[in-house]
Design a protein around this nucleic acid. Structure first.
Lengths: 160, 160
DNA sequence: TTAATTTAGGATAAAAGAGTCTTTAATACT
DNA sequence: AGTATTAAAGACTCTTTTATCCTAAATTAA
């Protein structure tokens, strides 16, 4: 099991790319999808969720696309996750026991409740501007199926 | 998205119940399933994974069932998770970028790498004996579909 | 040896997640 | 007005997860 669904990581990658590309103009979903090596149709669906949540503004027609409804600095990573995967990860019992709480806790309740706060704080303190800056500063990665992967794979092998 | 798959939380709940019931005798999967309100067939499949990993010993026929291959105290929670969900949660990139590492990190790499250690430590320091003791000490919960839920639900409503 | 019990394992089905394709609606440009 | 572009929306497919059911194999006890 991964921490986040595939839809969610695609949405996050797209949002970071958008933050890199600037916030003034509408960016076409097709362009984002191409840069990230994703299906444009599928990404459209995912970004629709962000539009419906009010995180993005969309515009149809030529020169259309999507852009942030507010400065990337003011959009927290957790808002993207919440819109796509929901808040379950940050709010629910680790053993899936509905209603687990201090009154009737599960055996893991105390430890997990404490940890959830840390996890949540991590996703709340990251914003899209910050993440975009990371990419620009250090030439970090956003793509999977790219030459980067192949290069790294070869490098890794050579190091051994 | 939940932290753990359903199979995994069923496996954990069953393992904790087994630890409560004692480690000497074989316990029938049917009995565990009944106490936890799960499908016995489904739980059998899940516990098979634990048997295949060597965490459990199984025995067919009358008086058969499953029991731990070593003292519950020596079985870490992370071992159950690893056998059912795998180690992805504790080892992989949060943005699903294969090969994300210090060489070619994703924008979230540093923060997540740091956090993964904390998460992993949590699951490594919990063992089945400890979790079972939690249940016994405080009358904690292991079941979902039980009267307990209904009672708590009503209590919660009344508190508002 | 027969019958009952219990895990193992395969076949199948239902539900959810992931992904594709087609049509529709909005809009900009000529 | 007409055409090209782009997101929205729905139908559809494929895969994985979740769950059920049936048969086989092992084992105990009578």
């Amino acid at each position: 099991m991964a921490l986040l669904s595939k839809s969610c990581v695609y949405g996050i990658r797209a949002a970071i790319l958008m933050a890199i590309k600037g916030e003034k103009e509408f960016i076409s979903i097709k362009d984002i999808a191409e840069e990230l090596n994703l299906s444009a149709h599928f990404l459209t669906k995912i970004l629709q969720l962000l539009t419906q949540e009010g995180l993005l503004i969309s515009h149809r027609g030529p020169k259309g696309g999507v852009k942030f409804s507010r400065p990337a600095k003011n959009i927290k990573l957790i808002e993207i996750v919440a819109a796509i995967d929901g808040m379950e990860l940050f709010e629910e019992c680790a053993l899936g026991l509905h209603g687990c709480g201090t009154a009737t806790p599960c055996p893991l309740h105390e430890k997990w409740a404490e940890h959830k706060i840390v996890l949540r704080t991590l996703f709340e303190t990251e914003n899209l501007e910050k993440l975009a800056d990371n990419v620009q500063d250090a030439g970090l990665r956003l793509r999977t199926l790219s030459q980067l992967d192949i290069i790294e794979f070869n490098n890794t092998k050579m190091q051994k």
